[in-house]
């Protein structure tokens, strides 16, 4: 086979939705004989897999409070945390040029050029002394594919674990669940490693494997002005993509109040409440149907659910019950 035409693309934006839009743009436009190395970084973001449920994987309330963005990628796999101490790489290739082992070798060589001894785990992770510093995921389109991954160089590990932990709701998801791993920053192993030196090393290793690059493109925040990228950006930043693309799932709440035991089971399709099941041992059951009616069709979003609860027409006896239900969703 003829040597592939290799290209290098980098983004200086830290906006996850824009960077993912650029990545999809690249996979849509890559030519059959091309291999592109794309390097990018996101500011504080949790990125979930294509078939994941954000309510199950991360603490959405906490993320909103801490100003951490949620993003959904095209590839499979689990949830990861990105910040400025993490470097992302993507190999975008024409279908026939996709070679996972070769691509992983580029990354392993880049890391090991610092004198380290990293190895592929076989479970899509790259490890050093048994601890993960890189997670990899894959997407296959009709004519092209991509393989991308993270490199924890100097990420905030405390933030990582804080935001990947789900909140108190019990979620049963039909999606793909994440697998927790022990993680490590490369800088903690060798403090000469930083984002800049790692970028240089990955680029060098890429050229050693695929030959000198024939083109170099740099995207900035202004990439959004490109019509095609803007449309993709709108998708990646939309509620529909972030939440409604989740496979159907269920959520449960239960608590004991002074008027009785209450259990609420919600079933979701496309991020909206489809079925509501309410169980109570309270003497007053008039609220059960009312509650089911007002919640059906509402988005699974605290604000929307509270709005529905508060706008219900209720009698005096139900007042306390509805206030307690609202406290469950708070």
């Amino acid at each position: 086979m003829k040597k592939p035409n290799s290209k290098f693309v980098k983004s200086t934006s830290f906006n996850p939705w824009l960077n993912l839009a650029i990545e999809e743009y690249l996979v849509e436009h890559v030519k059959a004989n091309e291999v592109i190395l794309y390097l990018w970084q996101n500011m504080d973001t949790v990125v979930i897999g294509s078939n994941q449920n954000p309510w199950k994987e991360c603490n959405i309330e906490k993320m909103q409070k801490n100003g951490i963005k949620l993003a959904r990628r095209l590839s499979g796999g689990g949830a990861v945390f990105h910040d400025a101490g993490n470097l992302n790489f993507t190999f975008v290739t024409g279908k026939d040029l996709y070679d996972q082992e070769k691509q992983l070798r580029v990354i392993l060589d880049a890391v090991n050029s610092f004198g380290l001894n990293a190895e592929f785990s076989g479970r899509n992770d790259i490890l050093i002394n048994g601890r993960k510093f890189s997670g990899n995921a894959y997407y296959f389109g009709d004519d092209s594919s991509y393989h991308h991954g993270t490199l924890l160089v100097d990420a905030d590990i405390a933030k990582l674990s804080e935001n990947l932990n789900p909140s108190k709701q019990k979620i049963v998801s039909k999606g793909i669940d994440s697998v927790k791993s022990r993680v490590v920053n490369l800088k903690a192993i060798d403090d000469s490693i930083n984002i800049k030196s790692m970028k240089t090393s990955v680029f060098k290793s890429f050229q050693e494997t695929y030959g000198n690059v024939s083109a170099y493109t740099e995207y900035t925040d202004a990439a959004i002005k490109d019509e095609e990228i803007r449309v993709l950006y709108e998708k990646y930043s939309s509620w529909e993509w972030l939440y409604a693309e989740s496979p159907s799932f269920d959520a449960y709440y239960d608590n004991r109040f002074n008027w009785g035991e209450l259990q609420i089971g919600l079933n979701f399709v496309d991020g909206c409440i489809k079925n509501v099941k309410v169980y109570t041992d309270s003497m007053n059951t008039s609220f059960v149907d009312k509650l089911a009616d007002i919640l059906t069709g509402v988005k699974f979003q605290k604000k929307e659910m509270l709005k529905a609860i508060r706008s219900a027409t209720i009698n005096c006896e139900e007042k306390q019950i509805f206030a307690d239900v609202a406290s469950l969703f708070e």
Partner: peptide
């Protein structure tokens, strides 16, 4: 495993339109 199903019974589809996703350990 079957991931997100993009369509429902009764929906019309065009050639090239996304139907569903299947995720294996190797990717989506």
């Amino acid at each position: 495993r079957v991931g997100k199903i993009a369509k429902a019974v009764g929906d019309t589809v065009k050639r090239g339109e996304k139907l569903l996703q299947v995720e294996s350990a190797k990717g989506n």
